[in-house]
Design a protein around this nucleic acid. Sequence first.
DNA 1: GCATTGACGAAGG
DNA 2: CCCTTCGCCAATG
Length: 125
Amino acid sequence: MRKIKNQQLPVVNKEEPSFFENVWEVARHIPKGRVTSYGAIANYLGTKSSARMVGWAMNGAHWVKPKVPAHRVVNRLGILSGKHHFSPPGMMEKLLKKEGVKVKNDQVVDFKKLFWDPAEELGFK
DNA sequence: GCATTGACGAAGG
DNA sequence: CCCTTCGCCAATG
């Protein structure tokens, strides 16, 4: 596959998709104007208890290709817990608003309605 | 090689 | 919703 400077990436040069790649893959399917949670992605990948790893994977979402809409992934409460990893921090909220997602006080408005569950939308494996 | 740190989450209080 | 504890596991010191 693609070569990546493995400075922070956990070896993605294997042919089989790593957990991280799967995370990115799923994230790329999040429709515009919708959001999902770290846990939902983890759940879809069958490692629901490893939501932290999803967040960890998002850490590299910025420099991985193709780009991953990490701004559409929030925590289970709809809070933009990852905004500090954007530059500037307000970028996440800005991107979401641009897609029609209302954000108030670092939290997605109508999160429940906008929630996109990969397990349902992409079909169960 | 142990300890700490997370873009998390569920459960219990 | 807040708080704590626990589970999770790669990365980092």
